[in-house]
Structure formats: structure tokens, C-alpha cells
Simulated assay, not measured.
Amino acid sequence: MPALRTALLQSSGELGDVAANLKVLDEAAARAAAAGAGVLLAPELFLTGYAIGADIARLAEP
């Protein structure tokens, strides 16, 4: 089995700003792929953040 190169994204993102966080994730994925990574790992809830309170309905995915 060939080795799998992984990359890690260490970032807390912008709380509640999914579009901005997707941009960060896209750029990180491009850098990781260019460096030979086959997988990019991001923090749990990176796209929305943890403390979203009343924004939970707005940020929920269908």
C-alpha cells in the first residue's frame, strides 16, 4: 500500500462566516495538494465555529 501524505490546517476560522472559511479551506487544500498531500484535515466545525448561538439555524446545512 502506498504512503498517504496528509496535511493539517491549524486555524480557528472566522466565527459564523462560512464563505470566508471556505475560501481559507480552498486555499489550504490547494497548497496541500501542491505539496503532495492527498488529504487535508481541518478542525471540527471549522466552517461555522463553535459558539454560534442564535445563528445555528442560519448556518445549518439543509
Rank of each mutant, 00 (worst) to 15 (best):
M1H: 12
M1T: 14
M1N: 11
P2G: 13
P2Y: 03
A3M: 09
L4R: 06
R5V: 13
T6H: 09
T6F: 15
A7D: 12
A7E: 01
A7I: 04
A7C: 12
A7N: 00
A7G: 12
L8W: 15
L9Y: 09
L9H: 10
L9S: 06
Q10E: 14
S11K: 08
S12I: 13
S12G: 13
S12C: 07
G13E: 03
E14L: 14
E14P: 02
E14Q: 08
G16L: 05
D17V: 07
V18D: 03
V18P: 03
A19C: 05
A19K: 07
A20N: 08
A20P: 00
N21K: 06
N21A: 12
L22F: 05
L22H: 10
K23T: 15
K23D: 13
L25D: 01
L25G: 04
D26T: 14
D26G: 10
D26P: 00
E27R: 07
E27Q: 10
E27A: 15
A28M: 09
A28P: 00
A28G: 06
A28H: 04
A29K: 06
A29S: 11
A30S: 13
R31H: 00
A32H: 06
A33W: 04
A33Y: 02
A33L: 08
A34H: 01
A34W: 04
A35R: 10
G36D: 12
A37Y: 03
A37D: 00
G38Y: 03
G38P: 00
G38A: 13
L40Q: 07
L40P: 05
L40C: 03
L41E: 07
L41T: 05
L41F: 15
L41Q: 02
A42T: 05
A42R: 03
A42H: 01
A42S: 12
A42Q: 03
P43W: 02
P43Q: 13
P43A: 15
E44V: 12
E44K: 11
L45Y: 04
F46C: 12
F46D: 03
F46Q: 08
F46E: 00
L47Y: 14
T48Y: 03
T48P: 00
T48Q: 01
T48S: 15
G49N: 11
Y50H: 06
Y50Q: 08
I52E: 02
I52K: 05
G53A: 14
G53L: 06
G53C: 04
A54M: 01
A54Q: 12
I56C: 08
I56E: 12
A57L: 14
A57W: 04
A57G: 07
A57D: 14
R58M: 12
R58H: 14
A60K: 08
A60R: 13
E61N: 11
P62A: 14
P62Q: 04
P62D: 10
P62R: 09
